[in-house]
Computed example of a mutant assay.
Amino acid sequence: MSDPFNILCLSAQAPDLVTSAFGPFVVQACGKLDELSNQLHLQPYDAVLFDLKLTGGADRLLHWAGLPRAVLESAVVVIGPEPTPAVCLRLLQAGVRDVLSSREATPEALGRVLRLAIERKRIDDSARRAYSIDLTTGLPNHNQLQEHMTHLLALREREPAAMALIVLHLDGFRAVEASLGTEAANVLRRKAAVRLRGSLRASDVVASLGPDMFAVLLAWLDADEDADHVARKLLAAVNQPFQVAGQDVPVGARLGVSQYPAHGKDAATLLRHAVGLASGGSFGRLLGQGAAANDES
């Protein structure tokens, strides 16, 4: 028997769900939106079911402060008295997974719609994670980095503070791939990611921009010169040879640094500036000369 699905309901149909063949469902009923908000803070739910007759209508639900959190964490389904196409579209645009008319909401139909909404959300969440993560290193990819920067920059408009983006263009990956194979190159990328992550604060973000390029987002700087200090620290970290397939592999690095707000006030501009500097070799090309670091595969 599969694990039960936890359903939070603001609906008169809540008790009927336990009989659906599309379950098993464990149902938590709420009497009003404020109570439902409190429940969402207490535990996660696979789905949330709203009856527009109990929410005060579609407009009330759409303006409810808890709706963004509900659609982010759960599959949201709405029941309405003959909802119009316009209302359905507005609800879908707000993140609702499905809309049923009250006359359609039999226990069997409602159970089916909830189960399919839950499964679709799980599939979508899995695809979104794959879209936002570099599968070789587990780091955020270009799209996720830009999204994170955009949110952070919006915060900086309200709470001004210096921040910086460092881009590292590493040389040596293509030679490793040509001589030792693709998996060896992937091992090298993972080791480089570990070294970069180990050289930073927990609040800083490391992202993958491609096969031989990484980005480091310094979310908060006490002084402008701190960015160059961190950049040189990162250079020193990757400048030590890596051990791959029993061999010492030297890696060269070129760096580009862009600072907010001096070099731009949006994610695309800051990223373009740093990538351009790294591609042009503004910090020069440094080949590892020291002893191999203690890397883990």
Rank of each mutant, 00 (worst) to 15 (best):
M1T: 11
S2T: 14
P4G: 07
F5G: 02
I7C: 04
S11C: 12
L17Q: 05
T19E: 10
S20W: 01
A21F: 04
P24I: 11
A29W: 02
C30Y: 01
L33R: 01
D34T: 14
L42M: 12
Y45D: 02
D46E: 10
D46S: 09
T55H: 01
G57D: 08
G57K: 08
A58E: 12
L61N: 03
L62P: 05
A65Q: 13
I79H: 01
E82Q: 15
P83Q: 02
P85K: 14
L89A: 15
L89S: 13
R90Y: 05
D98M: 03
S102W: 00
R103M: 08
E104S: 14
L110W: 04
L110I: 11
V113K: 00
R115W: 05
I118K: 01
E119L: 15
K121D: 03
R129L: 14
A130W: 06
D134V: 13
T136H: 06
L139D: 01
P140R: 05
N143Q: 14
Q144Y: 06
E147W: 02
E147D: 09
T150C: 09
T150A: 14
T150P: 00
L155N: 06
R156Y: 04
R158M: 09
P160W: 06
A162I: 11
M163R: 11
M163G: 11
A164G: 11
D171N: 11
E177S: 09
S179A: 14
S179D: 12
L180E: 06
E183C: 04
L188A: 15
A193P: 00
L196N: 02
R197E: 08
R197S: 13
S199M: 05
D204L: 07
V206M: 05
A207N: 07
S208R: 12
D226W: 02
H229F: 12
A237E: 10
N239M: 10
F242R: 09
F242S: 07
A253I: 14
Q259I: 15
Y260C: 12
H263S: 08
K265N: 10
D266M: 03
D266W: 03
L270Y: 00
A274Q: 07
A278E: 00
G280Y: 01
L287A: 10
D295C: 08
